[in-house]
Design a protein around this nucleic acid. Structure first.
Lengths: 223, 223
DNA sequence: CGGCCTGACTGTACGGTGTAAAGTTCGCAG
DNA sequence: CTGCGAACTTTACACCGTACAGTCAGGCCG
C-alpha cells in the first residue's frame, strides 16, 4: 500500500484535446470569449500555458474545437420528419444553444476549419429540405433566411445591454437622459407604453419564426 | 516671411474627437476591429497613444464613437413614406452599411452607451411603424424580425470564410477533404449542384426580405 | 542493467495590448 | 515676467499569444 507500489500513476493524467476543450468551454461560458487565454486555460488544467501547444497548434485551433462542440449541441432533423416541424425544432434548439453559449454566435460561421459536427449539421438540414422536395435554389433561400433570422435574433438578444426585463426601461431611460427632452419622441412613447415590466423581448422569436415558415410553405407549394 | 513671423501655427493641430474617430474608422475598415489599438491609432494621428486619453476616457469610448458613425450612415425612413417602402429601403441600406463596415455588426446592439445617431435611427423606425398604424406589440415584432434578419444576414455573409464566388466550391471541397467520402452526402450533392461559379449567396437577401414584408403586411391587415 | 529516445511538459523571452500616474511643454491671462 | 491649464509624452505594469530551448519520467533496445 505504499505509494510507489503499483507504479503510482504517472505524475499526472496527461492532457487530451477533450479535457482542454471542456475547460475552454467552461471558461468561455462564464466570462465570454475575452476571458479565454492560454494562461488561464492552462491554470484551469493545472498546467503551464505552453503545455497546450503540444496538443493544439495555436489558440485558433482551440476555438475551432469549442465552436464544433456548440454545433454538436444543436438538435438535428431526424429522418422522415416533415420539413416544417424539423426546421421549427432546429431553430428553437439552435436559439437555445446560442443563448447558452453567448460567445459563440460570432464564430459559428466564420471558422475556416469547420468541424465534423458543423458539417453534419449542414448535411442534415440540407438533406431534410431536399427530401421535402425543395430544389437547390429554394434550399439555399430557405436555409439562408432561417439561419439569418436565428443568428440575428440571438445576436440582437444577446447584445442587449440588459438582462432582466425589469431593467429594460431603466437602461433605456438612462440612455435618453443624456439628450434633450423630446429629441426622440417616438422612442420615448414606445418605451413608456410598451416596455413595461413583464415584457420579454425574447417571446417574439417564435412569432417571427412562424411567419417565415408560413412564407416558405407558401413559396414551396406554389413552385 | 520667417517661420516665427505669424505665430507659426501651434506646433501641431490639436486632436479632436472627430479626427480621432475618423482615423479609427479608417483603421478598422481596413484591418478589422482587431487592428484598432490605441498605439496604432495614435501613430496614425502622429501622437503618442496616451494622448488619446485626454479626449476619450478609454478605448470603449472610441468604439462607441465609431459605432454611432456607422448608425449615422443608415438611411432613415422619411416622413410620410409608407411603411413597407420605408422598411425595405432601410433594410437594404443597413445591409450595405454593415457590409461596408464588417467589424460593426457585433457592436451595433451591444453598446451600453447608444449614441445620438443610434437613437435617432430607432426613433425614426418606430415612428414610421406607429404612423402606419402598427400597435406597440406589432411594432416590436416587426422591428425585431426585420433587424434580426438584417443583422443575421450580414453576420452570416460576412463570416463566410470566402469572398469571391469562384472560391466557394473550392473552400467547401477543402473542408470536406479531411473527412471520409460519403460522410456528408447531402452536403456534397448540394455543393456540386448548386455552388457553381456565378452563384452569389448575397442575392438571396431581397428574397427573404420580401417574404418577411409580405408576412408583416398580411399580419397587419388582418389585425 | 545502462543508455537513449521520445512524449509531455516547463522556463524564459519577445513584442504586442490597455491604461494608471506622473512629468513635460507651450500659449496665453494677469 | 509669472503662473496656469490644456495638450501631450514618458514610464510603468500586468496581461496577451507564442517561438524556442530546456527538463524529466517512462519505455524500449542492446
Amino acid at each position: 500500500m505504499t505509494a510507489q507500489a503499483t507504479n503510482r500513476a504517472p505524475r499526472r493524467v496527461p492532457l487530451s484535446r477533450e479535457r482542454v476543450l471542456d475547460a475552454a468551454i467552461k471558461l468561455v461560458d462564464q466570462g465570454g470569449l475575452g476571458s479565454l487565454s492560454m494562461r488561464k486555460l492552462g491554470q484551469e488544467l493545472g498546467v503551464e500555458a505552453m503545455a497546450l501547444y503540444y496538443h493544439f497548434a495555436n489558440k485558433d485551433e482551440v476555438i475551432d474545437g469549442i465552436v464544433d462542440i456548440v454545433f454538436s449541441e444543436i438538435e438535428l432533423p431526424t429522418d422522415g420528419t416533415d420539413w416544417r416541424t424539423a426546421m421549427r425544432r432546429r431553430a428553437i434548439s439552435m436559439r437555445d444553444v446560442l443563448l447558452r453559449h453567448r460567445w459563440a454566435i460570432n464564430l459559428m460561421e466564420s471558422r475556416r476549419n469547420a468541424g465534423p459536427a458543423n458539417l453534419r449539421h449542414h448535411d442534415a438540414v440540407i438533406g431534410n429540405l431536399r427530401a421535402a422536395g425543395f430544389e437547390n435554389a429554394m434550399v439555399a433561400r430557405a436555409y439562408s433566411l432561417l439561419d439569418a433570422y436565428i443568428y440575428g435574433f440571438a445576436l440582437t438578444k444577446i447584445n442587449l445591454p440588459f438582462d432582466a426585463t425589469e431593467e429594460v426601461a431603466e437602461v433605456a431611460q438612462g440612455m435618453l437622459q443624456r439628450f434633450p427632452v423630446n429629441e426622440y419622441p417616438n422612442l420615448v412613447a414606445y418605451i413608456a407604453e410598451h416596455l413595461k415590466p413583464g415584457y420579454d423581448y425574447g417571446d417574439d422569436f417564435e412569432y417571427g419564426l412562424d411567419l417565415i415558415l408560413d412564407g416558405l410553405e407558401k413559396a414551396s407549394s406554389t413552385a
